[in-house]
Amino acid sequence: MSLRSPLSQARGLGSAKEGVGHWWMQRLSALALIPLALWFVFSIARYHVADYPTMMAWVHAPLVAVTLVLFFIAGFYHSALGVQVVIEDYVGNEALKIGGIALVKLAHFALAAASIFAVLKIAFGAP
């Protein structure tokens, strides 16, 4: 008989040993992305043809800069969680699976940091 409670034995299970936390954060980030992504598609449709000064002035506006940063946080987080699920579903080899997930997470962290830095650099720079 184990002295651990049933709850503590069940915690942290699942294919990547994360329990229900992953599932919940995928939903929470999805919820945040509904308004953020809608705003972002529209903004890209509009600003991908902008010239350099227009683009700078747009990102420089505090509301736009903050919304961009929020989109990047929610988007990269959601994306990393999502790709992890796909790897768990299709990659059988345990070492390859853990290695793949690690690589995906690190790549998402790097891209998120670079994107957020880029926005802040423009936002804090000269208008």
Binding site: Y52, M56, S79, G82, L111, A114, S115
Partner: peptide
């Protein structure tokens, strides 16, 4: 979902190109 995940790389390049200056932004544009 997977396509969008790959698309985030291009989005990152977009803002990085803008932050790097007019020349790199023009290349991307």
């Amino acid at each position: 979902g997977l396509g969008l995940s790959m698309g985030t790389v291009l989005i990152a390049i977009w803002v990085l190109a803008a932050a790097a200056g007019p020349w790199s932004y023009a290349q991307f544009a």
